[in-house]
Design a protein around this nucleic acid. Structure first.
Length: 512
DNA sequence: TTCCGACAGTGGGGTCGCAAT
DNA sequence: ATTGCGACCCCACTATCGGAA
């Protein structure tokens, strides 16, 4: 199949807003793909490369290349070239990658170049990624959508399921069962603004501490242990102490879900930055492990001794977990019967925060494990802090925010009467706010370099954030975690904005 | 008819490893 | 030795579609 066809379909998908139409367009393309093209066409139309990320970003892409006049590239050509590109490493590799990308782009028409650019940068922006591709695949093969979705979650890969499905038809879905050693997409949580709201929605539930670490899925089959992240990367080699802990457990074959986190000598959780840095260390694991040892803390079990527990209610899964994993290696929790016991849950949240953790997750006791879904049966609750900050500048947005000033530069007042930038945010704005702030900030503009519009520091905005973290980038030595706009405070003047001093005082555990 | 669940988009900061400078 | 880039951890929030209620 020609790449040209994919580029055309992608454009058409982007141009339609109806999801049903997007699905139909993808299904038609999938039906027409030859068997050898399927493992390429499906990920491409889901906005990903079958090779995963291959070390090509904006810099490596380099300058635009004159497009070819006539389409000639096949998808298999492109795939072969990108596989070659992914292999390039060592000195001179960046230039070589740039050369290979240039060669590929030069063989592509304008439409194809735009499509490839999206694929290589991971930003196809056609309003359809995995979910729509899965639905399209179901439609193309006549398999029930729910069955295809489930198979993809269990396989952890759309591509694998697509190949099997197109080769052997709907019966192939039977093959995708929960298997120890094959990671499944983890279940995710929604947010609730308070414990009361969460308990109100869920009724009887478990309220568990939420640890600020790295999600981990632990597979043990006898003496073999494998560890996977939320996106199913294999991180076994980086966390030997987690492997050792898994081997200490009583069961022989199981899949556990939990969090990896580092505790200091006093048993307090280290900052997310420290834990994440440790988990990211690959070159000298032994040294990293001595400096920042990590522990697994589990909250769910998906499989024990060959039994698939995914469809069991959480209460039953947890009973299995308690049999398998000793209490210190499980998250702390409390059971709440319903809204009458909201107070218990609130007390538990307060205790959890007191122990230095992030917040809590309320979990319905009768819900199954919805692999790969952001189920409404898990609700996280974290304390939210707010600040009044001054807008220093704003950046021109992209995509649907093109022509709008989007990303705000935020500052707090300093002791000497100046302003210290604390970070940026693009979150929390409605379309109406975007329109309003674009207009207002343009009135205050003193400079526009085409990317950043600098303004007179007169506008005050109320910002919500989850916490403070150390920063080498910003002048106060700290930055806000997950900052988002709540509202503009036109009733306030810059002199009324919060100061760095009060911010630091509110987070004594963070040292700039 | 209205409500709400699921998705995609729009980007944020930090850290590590590697290549370039 | 330092700097810059890309990958990958963490993530919030809004708009929209389309099925559920």
């Amino acid at each position: 199949m020609l790449l040209h066809r994919l580029a055309r379909v992608s454009q058409e998908v982007a141009a339609t807003s109806a999801r049903s139409r997007k699905t139909a367009l993808l299904a038609e393309l999938f039906r027409d793909a030859e068997a050898e093209d399927v493992p390429i066409v499906i990920p491409y139309l889901a906005g990903r490369l079958p090779q995963g990320r291959i070390g090509v970003g904006w810099k490596v892409l380099g300058r635009p290349v004159a497009p070819a006049g006539e389409p000639s590239l096949t998808v298999r050509d492109v795939d072969a070239r990108l596989s070659q590109l992914a292999q390039v490493s060592g000195p001179g590799s960046q230039a070589e990658r740039t050369r290979l990308v240039g060669e590929l782009m030069g063989a592509a028409t304008g439409d194809e170049q735009r499509f490839l650019l999206g694929l290589l940068t991971g930003e196809v922006r056609q309003g359809a990624l995995d979910a729509v591709a899965v639905e399209g695949l179901a439609q193309a093969t006549g398999a029930p959508g729910a069955d295809v979705r489930r198979a993809v979650m269990l396989a952890g890969s759309l591509q694998t399921v697509a190949e099997a499905l197109l080769a052997d038809g709907p019966a192939a879905l039977e093959r995708f069962r929960l298997t120890v050693g094959r990671p499944v997409l983890p279940m995710l949580a929604h947010s609730a603004s308070s414990v009361a709201e969460a308990v109100d929605k869920l009724g009887a539930c478990a309220v568990e501490e939420k640890l600020d670490g790295i999600r981990v899925q632990v597979h043990r089959d006898g003496g073999t242990v494998r560890l996977y992240t939320r996106t199913l990367d294999d991180i076994t080699d980086r966390l030997p102490e987690v492997t050792a802990a898994a081997l200490e457990l009583r069961g022989e074959r199981f899949i556990l879900d939990g969090e990896v986190i580092s505790f200091d000598a006093d048993g307090r959780p280290r900052s997310f930055q420290e834990t994440a840095g440790r988990v990211g260390s690959r070159t000298d694991v032994a040294t990293a492990a001595r400096a920042v040892p990590v522990s697994p803390v589990f909250f769910d079990v998906l499989s024990v001794d060959g039994h698939d527990l995914l469809d069991l209610p959480f209460a039953e899964r947890h009973a299995e977990l308690a049999r398998l994993v000793p209490e210190p290696m499980r998250v702390r929790r409390t059971l709440v019967s319903g809204p009458d016991e909201t107070h218990t849950a609130e007390q538990f949240l307060a205790d959890t925060i007191g122990r230095g953790h992030e917040g809590v997750v309320a979990k319905s006791l009768d819900a199954p494990y919805s692999a790969g879904r952001r189920g409404a049966s898990w609700l996280k609750v974290k304390p939210v802090h707010t600040l009044d900050l001054v807008v220093l500048a704003a950046e021109w947005g992209h995509g649907r925010r093109t022509g709008k000033l989007s990303n705000l530069h935020l500052a707090a007042r300093t002791a000497d009467g100046g302003l210290a930038m604390l970070g940026k945010t693009f979150k929390g704005m409605t379309d109406a706010m975007l329109t309003w702030q674009t207009e207002r900030l343009r009135q205050l503009a003193v400079d526009d370099d085409g990317h950043v519009v600098t303004v007179r520091p007169e506008l005050v905005v109320e910002i919500a954030y989850d916490g403070l973290q150390r920063s080498t980038r910003y002048p106060a030595g700290v930055t806000l975690r997950f900052a988002r706009v709540i509202r503009y405070r036109e009733d306030k003047r810059p002199e009324d904005a919060d100061t760095v001093e009060t911010l630091l005082a509110a987070h004594p555990e963070v040292k700039p």
